[in-house]
Write a protein that binds this DNA or RNA. Structure first.
Length: 482
RNA sequence: UCCCUCUUAGCUCAGCUGGUUAGAGCACAUGACUGUUAAUCAUGGGGUCCCUGGUUCGAGUCCAGGAGAGGGAGCCA
């Protein structure tokens, strides 16, 4: 008999029919009620077995984590708590899971609450929990929605390289890619590692951004995006940084900064809406989980809005849009600053904003997502377009409550002389980047783009607080398990 | 990389100003019960108190160093 997924069965359309489900036991209660989950949705199906007639040896093996197949008639549930249930006529056990914790290799997930830190240590099994099941279904939906959004708008999905030889992107420390013998690498006359003898005949690294290649694509296809893994060898130990993360980077010809901002806002709202529509149960579960968690906190530390309210609020309001200069003025005039409550007091113009300032703007002042634009040129990258004032560049950062910077983008400098001058100022070798400068030499055009940290988006939509909990196998300094 | 906190049973934690036999809930095992909702009830087993060294008559508790984890900062997405 063909197996049917639990998500389908719970629709209740197959009532009075014989069905087969396959999945993993969550709990086995009262020697009668098996809760089975197959990952198709947050909910379990309840299968009722008659313990008086069933084989006692089989019943003993129905422990949490065991993989089973169940065949039986789907009926309206005789109990409360679920609409339908299966009256078991046959059980097949595909794989046992040792329940006795005194034995080695017993199943580490018990029918009880586990800490996220503990589950992180068994990341290979945490998908089998409600929380991570929900998180990764939402992650999947968001990824799909990103592709759908750009495809429907006529963007081309460009696969930018993972291994690159350019180390001038300036986005962060890079991971070296080499096949040279680490103990005895070939050396040059100057006693330096001779990368001419390396696999590619030159020094290579894992990409820190697909943006520069994305710009090449935009100069031919008009609208492109990349969505792939990105690597940063920064020694960052925070709840919002990974050494390996997934980034979405659209690049659009004939877009200025305003167009760029509008697209970013539209995309964020689109994918959040898509997740709310397609993963309603998962997000409701995650929302409830946060409420339960906050019950233990003092009133003052609880969030004003639930996760669902927060998402809907974000969808229902325009993002605040202000320039860096306006932000500095708001911060300088704030009571918070006057009472010297910031660790870094705002005084002059030109310094980068600290996390506490960004949080103040988003969480206290505007109480919604904020797009900050037109930063001082000295704190931003070489490729950002110089504004008329000669002091600021056409950059934009989108700041989200609880997350901070979720998107960084800009209108790019399309004028060859200005770009070369900037690169010279910032000591970026123009010879190596000649392929990039070719876009400005041959049919240059105004264009813009941005980078969205996918995991940060997943954090926001799931209400999780540690980025290690929204990627399957997190890579962080000193950690590359699984 | 810097600052702060934590590390006690399989898991989540309690353990006071150092005091002799280290506790609870859950999980697990056995039995009972049988329409449960992380079932319930009874009984039972289970500990290198992270590691190393020190102070002390005596250290889970105090001190030093180390390891691991968490939170915050910086770098950013």
């Amino acid at each position: 008999m063909a197996r049917i997924k639990i998500k389908e069965i719970l629709k209740g359309e197959l009532i009075d029919q014989t069905v087969t489900v396959k999945g993993w036991v969550r709990t086995f209660r009262n020697n009668s009620f098996i809760a089975v989950n197959d990952g198709s949705c947050i909910h379990n199906i309840q299968a009722v077995v008659n313990f008086e007639t069933a084989d006692p040896e089989t019943l003993k093996r129905l422990t949490p984590g065991a993989c089973i197949g169940i065949t039986g008639k789907l009926i309206k549930s005789l109990g409360k708590g679920q609409t339908v249930e299966i009256v078991v006529s046959d059980i097949e056990i595909y794989g046992d899971a040792e329940a006795d914790v005194s034995k080695p290799n017993s199943y580490p997930l018990q029918p009880k609450a586990h800490s996220l830190e503990y589950l992180r240590e068994i990341a290979h099994l945490r998908f089998r929990t409600n929380v991570f099941g929900a998180v990764f279904r939402v992650r999947h939906t968001l990824a799909y929605a990103v592709h759908k959004f750009f495809n429907d708008k006529g963007f081309l999905y460009l696969h930018t390289p993972i291994i690159t030889s350019s180390d001038a992107e300036g986005a962060g420390e890079m991971f070296r890619v080499t096949t040279l013998d680490p103990k005895a690498p070939p050396l040059t006359e100057n006693n330096e590692v001779d990368f001419k003898q390396d696999f590619f005949g030159k020094a290579t690294n894992l990409t820190v951004s697909g943006q520069l290649e994305g710009e090449l694509g935009a100069m031919a296809f008009s609208d492109v995006y990349t969505f792939g893994p990105t690597f940063r060898a920064e020694n960052s130990n925070t709840t919002r940084h990974l050494a390996e993360f997934w980034m979405i980077e659209p690049e659009m010809a004939f877009f200025d900064l305003k167009d760029n901002m509008a697209l970013a806002e539209e995309m964020l709202k689109y994918v959040i809406t898509y997740a709310l529509e397609n993963n309603k149960d998962d997000i409701e579960f995650l929302s409830q989980r946060l409420l339960d968690e906050e019950k233990n906190k003092p009133q003052a530390d609880r969030s004003e809005l639930s996760l669902l309210e927060k998402l809907n609020f974000c969808l229902g309001n325009e993002f605040a849009k202000i320039t860096y200069t306006e932000a500095i003025n708001i911060l300088r005039e704030s009571n918070h600053n006057k009472k010297k409550k910031f660790q870094y007091i705002i005084d002059g113009w030109g310094a980068d904003l600290q996390s506490e300032h960004e949080r103040y703007l988003v969480e206290k002042h505007f109480k919604k997502p904020v797009i900050l634009t037109d930063y001082p040129k000295d704190i931003k990258s070489f490729y950002m377009r110089m504004n008329e004032d000669g002091k600021t560049v056409a950059a934009m950062d989108i700041l989200f409550p609880g997350i901070g910077e979720i998107i960084g983008g800009s209108q790019r400098e399309e004028r060859l002389e200005k770009l070369e001058a900037r690169m010279k100022d910032m000591h970026i070798p123009t010879e190596e980047m000649s392929w990039y400068l070719d876009t400005r030499r041959f049919g240059s055009c105004p264009h813009a783009g941005f980078g969205l940290g996918f995991e940060r988006l997943v954090l926001f939509v799931t209400g999780m607080t540690n980025i290690r909990d929204v990627i399957a196998f997190p890579r962080t300094p000193n950690n590359c398990e699984f």
